[in-house]
Design a protein around this nucleic acid. Structure first.
Length: 791
DNA sequence: AGCACGCCGACT
DNA sequence: GTCGGCGTGCTC
């Protein structure tokens, strides 16, 4: 028996299968998907079995044996292995990288070097070794002087080096006891001991904590152990990220006609075991979640599993709570803020069948269920579903492949679907289901557009228009709450010298530095470069520096000064800590803080009954980005954030402040006319030959040397040109919108194509060429298939 | 990725 | 003559 193994070395050179012999004693333990330990060249490494076969054409003398199997159950299912191959091919990625993305990081191996004394060591070596008071020495802890003393013995083989491997994350254990199940009992006078012994025998092994909770002291435990009735053991415990939280039961709701129609259509696909993609297009507050919940219930009833995707789990605590309340312990939560260990625990719950629903962000699409009954992607248009580092996969695409494999429905939900998905529903590739009403019959608020240029003309230079100011004061007076959105973090956008016009720039990137007041510094949002706020202009030396543009930090101050009320601010800077999102939202809700101010992270999914006003302070920030999806993103953001208002009994109001009051993205968001926006935007996409009319691939060449970048990008261009048909369009090479990041110059090429069956072979060849040449030239080529941002 | 092999220049 | 630079090639 032979196993084809992919080794855990992330290099293009070894990105292929290696054949190992399966020793007899491991025959029944090794399957495709097993994590194994093999000798590779001079060292031992971890690998994954991809195939098992009876024969091999290789020279038998070359084949080594598998050393060890790491898990009882294979970590990858057959389906996940197939999926990993497909992903590696489509996203031009090495197979092992994809496998690493599929599995929790905790399964990576960490090795350390230790020194050990050989059996035939000389007396001198033994004496030297004794200085370190251990039977093995961790090389990491040695000083240079220590090493100098030991090296002669290593050379003479008295002391040898060994690599020790440990799981990145250990399973968490607690001290506890287990009964030895003796027939004998403690003496009848030791009442407490007898009680505890019986408890442990009935319940099985118990941790010290749980025993103490039952009211028995450490003394009783020790007595049982001393007399031999019980033994001390380590008990595996699961880390529970939701420890201490109480979930209230969430009752199943009666569906509206529209919801019921949607449910019925999806249920049909579930019952018939057919794959179908549904686009659940429902206005904000139309009760998409209730449809999801009932669909999942149906799937669970059939003994199948469900994957629930949310854009960013930290931002949707209300959704998670609702799932936990409805389905209890059946839910595993894949949280980006979880520690490696916690993530691994949740993963094991799924793999071992102890959880039946998995809810989480992007990587949750790889939840290792072996019997998926439905996959739901909420807010399917969100760009966070696309990973912006390697591998550059899109969770929507992965979900589609998995749903096809399991013959189950894929449900894409959104109030503002991506143009791609809606376009597919227009031609019936996806089945569209519409929810046009809110179940509680609250009407959607009608946003007002305030022209900021007119405000300026009228002499109002504040960032708050007179109209919005009036509404804010009104809400404060009535004790109602409001959400204000400013899509720009930091204090001021940039600093400018009034005298010479100089703007401090990042020395590593072609971007102006952002002023952060909290630490009185200028920061680069691209490379984390930071310098203290200067007192004088670095060019002309004048002290006439002025702050331009406004970030959330500054607005917070302005609001506090103007209205003299409490404010909850949510942006990357205030939510970096674990649990910060929840804490801030809880504060907003429970303490009735009048204003929630934040960047786009506050636009999604929040449901607060007392919020009656939403203000978008600058609707143009995204609109002005050099990206063809800028209109779409603006429309989506405005629609999403408007949906936060008027979720209670009082009708909500929404204000958009903008300098582009006539822009169709803003006008149509105001009228809540998705369809009209779709048609308008499709015209533009068709003319400019963008997605969904064409597929895109973004090539980015980067290097510290600009000449190398120019040379390499023209080479890439030529290579693509030679291998695509006339119907494809190649744009560039041209400098990327941000020409330099972290001291690297960047050029990009955009390929637009409709069908190029042989393209992917060429892409893999290009990738191989550049990754192998990288050592020499330091010129990197990044290939992003279906890019989410073209910048 | 990491390591051995091998071919050139600079030095004891 | 030998030490060490790093280009090349290989790992079942």
């Amino acid at each position: 028996m032979y196993a084809s193994v992919i080794v855990q070395i992330s290099s293009k050179n070894v990105d292929r299968l290696y054949t190992y012999k399966i020793p007899d004693h491991l025959k029944d333990k090794i399957q495709p998907g097993s994590r194994v330990f093999v000798s590779f060249g001079p060292r031992m490494i971890q690998g994954f079995v991809i195939e098992v076969s009876q024969h091999t054409d290789l020279d038998p003398s070359k084949i080594k044996e598998i050393q060890k199997v790491m898990d009882i159950e294979p970590v990858l299912t057959k389906e996940l292995i197939e999926l990993s191959k497909k992903l590696a091919d489509y996203y031009v990625e090495r197979h092992i990288k994809v496998i690493e993305a599929i599995l929790p990081a905790a399964l990576k191996m960490k090795s350390k070097s230790v020194l050990k004394l050989s059996n035939e060591a000389s007396l001198e070596a033994v004496n030297q070794f004794k200085q370190f008071h251990n039977d093995k020495i961790n090389v990491k802890n040695l000083t240079m002087d220590d090493l100098k003393l030991l090296i002669p013995f290593i050379n003479s083989k008295d002391i040898y080096e060994e690599k020790e491997f440990e799981q990145h994350t250990k399973m968490k254990t607690r001290r506890g006891i287990e009964s030895n199940y003796l027939d004998a009992r403690p003496s009848s006078r030791a009442v407490k001991q007898i009680e505890l012994l019986e408890l442990v025998e009935n319940k099985g092994p118990m941790t010290y904590e749980s025993i103490e909770e039952e009211g028995y002291s450490i003394g009783i435990i020790n007595a049982l152990v001393d007399k031999g009735f019980c033994k001390k053991i380590d008990i595996l415990v699961e880390r529970d990220p939701f420890e201490g939280r109480v979930f209230y039961e969430d009752k199943k709701k009666v569906l509206t006609d529209e919801q019921a129609r949607a449910f019925k259509a999806i249920n049909q696909s579930i019952q018939n075991n057919t794959h179908e993609t549904f686009l659940l297009h429902g206005i904000t507050g139309s009760g998409k979640t209730e449809v999801y919940l009932q669909v999942i219930e149906e799937v669970l009833n059939r003994g199948e599993n469900a994957i629930m995707m949310v854009p960013e789990i930290a931002l949707t605590p209300q959704m998670v709570n609702r799932f936990k309340s409805r389905f209890g312990d059946d839910v595993a939560v894949m949280h980006s803020m979880l520690s490696h260990g916690e993530r691994y625990d949740e993963w094991r719950k799924i793999r071992e069948g102890r959880a039946r629903i998995s809810i989480g962000a992007r990587s949750n699409v790889f939840a290792p269920f072996d019997n998926i009954g439905c996959i739901i992607i909420d807010e399917e248009h969100e760009s966070t579903y696309k990973q912006n580092e390697r591998p550059y996969y899109h969770a929507r695409e992965v979900a589609k492949w998995r749903a096809e494999y399991f013959n189950c429905p894929l449900i894409l939900g959104s109030a503002t679907p991506s143009l791609e998905s809606y376009a597919r529903s227009e031609v019936n590739v996806y089945k569209r289901l519409e929810l046009t009403k809110r179940p509680t019959n609250q009407t959607l608020p009608t946003p007002e557009i305030v022209s900021m240029s007119k405000e300026r003309e009228a002499g109002n230079t504040s960032i708050i228009s007179r109209n919005l100011d009036m509404k804010i004061r009104d809400r404060i007076e009535k004790d109602e709450q409001m959400i204000l959105l400013l899509n720009r973090r930091g204090y001021a956008n940039f600093l400018v010298c009034q005298n010479c016009g100089h703007v401090p720039m990042c020395p590593n990137c072609d971007i102006s530095l952002t002023y952060h007041k909290s630490n009185a510094s200028l920061m680069c949002h691209y490379c984390a470069y930071e310098e203290p706020m200067p007192h004088a202009c670095g060019v002309c030396g004048e002290h006439d520096l002025s702050l331009r543009g406004t970030g959330t930090q500054k607005i917070e101050e302005v609001l506090r000064d103007t209205y003299n009320v409490d404010i909850v601010r949510m942006d990357i800077d205030t939510t970096r800590q674990k649990g910060a999102h929840e804490k801030l939202l809880k504060q907003f809700e429970e303490e009735s803080v009048p204003i929630l101010l934040g960047t786009q992270m506050i636009a999604k999914g929040l449901d607060f009954k007392n919020v009656t006003l939403v203000g978008v302070l600058n609707a143009d920030t995204i609109l002005n980005l050099p990206d063809y999806r800028a209109n779409e993103r603006t429309f989506q953001l405005l629609t999403q954030v408007s949906g936060r208002a008027g979720r209670g009994d009082i009708k909500g109001e929404v204000v958009y402040q903008t300098y582009n009051e006539d822009h169709y993205a803003i006008q149509l968001a105001k009228n809540n006319n998705y369809r009209e926006f779709f048609l308008r935007e499709m015209e533009f996409r068709k003319l400019a030959r963008y997605s969904p009319y064409y597929f895109h691939i973004l090539f980015t060449v980067s290097s510290e040397n600009i000449e190398d970048v120019i040379k390499a990008s023209s080479d890439v261009h030529k290579e693509i040109q030679n291998h695509v048909s006339k119907s494809s369009i190649i744009i560039g090479p041209s400098p990327s919108p941000i020409e330099r990041i972290q001291n690297k110059y960047r050029f990009q090429i955009i390929l637009k194509y409709k069908s190029e069956p042989e393209l992917f072979d060429v892409l893999h060849k290009l990738d191989t060429k550049y990754s192998i040449n990288y050592q020499k030239t330091k010129t990197a080529l990044r290939i992003d298939v279906d890019p989410e941002y073209i910048m």
